[in-house]
Design a protein around this nucleic acid. Structure first.
Lengths: 209, 209
DNA sequence: CAAAAAAGGGATGGTGTCACCCCTTTTTTT
DNA sequence: AAAAAAAGGGGTGACACCATCCCTTTTTTG
């Protein structure tokens, strides 16, 4: 059974990261720790295959580079056989190098760390040994979330709204089919159904229909 | 139709906040903006009932109090009729007062901002006019997440694992029933089923069974 | 014009979760 | 010893979502 630990003080972020880990491993147990105290206690008593760390924890100075390194170093030394992924909001290449040197397998900026990226990071680690994803702004349009839509329908609207100009809808359906491992016709159906729902309720559709 | 906008650069956090907003309003549309540019563009073209803002946005200095106030002030001025909620990782009472003076209805620290808290915040706003929730560490034990469990089962395990010493299981079932608006017997059933699943797979159960 | 793409539907079975009901046996409490 | 709590099961209908296949009409494109 694959075992992972997420060390992050911000609750919603911790839960989101735990979701990402779960999505990357079919069968697994994921523990979430709010503080270094809880984390070290768990690391002493149990074995972990993967540890995700945000160095900005309560009780430490988030602006002190020494404190940040100390947190990560303590965790790495407490779980030498695990894969260690550092996730931070205030990321920079210099710090990334530092963490890499003390044994981290990945360094991720929170901005741009979207659902699904985690799996790519794990691929990077297993192929190249290290993954670096610095924060970068990627959005040009807002994301829309409609409570009337099912997840599949929401996803269909999402992908279609972010369609690059000139790209045919058919191509998006193929892409969606590929990403969700379903038939392109089904993807098309979801999009049409979602669109119909929004029209019926008089919603101002996101640009790009 | 209730319309909300979440302005936050960290993708996972933005999506989580959008989820929280959605969970608080039965029928709604929630938009997510990664940058102030996207947010202001939307605020110009559309009306919003609620705006959630993280002042630490790309292009601004997160340590500069002036920058942080400028971001929030610009958004409030662009949507004077909306409710404005400020969410930040580096929260302090002084800043809370500042944002309150320029018109924010709530000031929330990210640490301790858990699923469900958002609804309480909205209650605070409608009854007292303002809600203040500074970051504070609350966990003493880690959270467990098992991929084999359904959401209901996971929730049952969660609540039972955080049971205070001396509290009877029956009381937890009642609490769970109350929070999920289901029967206490059903809550008990979920817990038993969850426990059985974990035992069957040989999982080391969280302390407290 | 002809072909492709898009818009707009209807109907289908499978599956998982939800929420409820029932039962017995063992352990703990009082 | 009696009563309550806990452990451990089985079974049920409802319902939402998933995924697929089918159809027609309108619009756009080449």
């Amino acid at each position: 059974m694959f075992r992972a630990l997420v060390v992050e003080d911000q609750t919603l972020m911790r839960l989101a990261l735990m979701n990402e880990v779960q999505a990357s491993f079919e069968k697994c147990v994921v523990l979430g720790a709010e503080t270094l105290t809880i984390a070290t206690a768990e690391l002493q008593n149990n074995h972990f295959d993967l540890v995700v760390i945000d160095p900005g924890l309560p009780g430490f100075d988030p602006t002190s580079q020494g404190d940040r390194v100390a947190v990560v170093d303590k965790i790495i030394e407490a779980s030498p056989s695990a894969i260690h992924i550092v996730v931070t909001g205030s990321d920079n290449r210099c710090e990334a190098d530092g963490f890499r040197q003390i044994g981290a397998a990945a360094y991720l900026g929170k901005t741009g760390l979207a659902p699904g990226v985690f799996s790519d990071v794990l691929d990077d680690i297993s192929t190249k040994g290290f993954s670096l994803r610095l924060s970068r702004v990627v959005m040009t349009k807002p994301d829309y979330r409609f409570s009337v839509l099912t997840p599949r329908e929401q996803e269909a609207i999402d992908m279609m709204a972010h369609r690059a100009p000139g790209v045919k809808r058919k191509e998006i359906f193929s892409l969606m089919a590929d990403r969700l491992a379903i038939d392109a016709n089904s993807a098309e159906k979801y999009y049409k159904q979602a669109r119909a729902k929004l029209m019926r309720q008089g919603h101002p559709l996101p640009h790009g229909l």
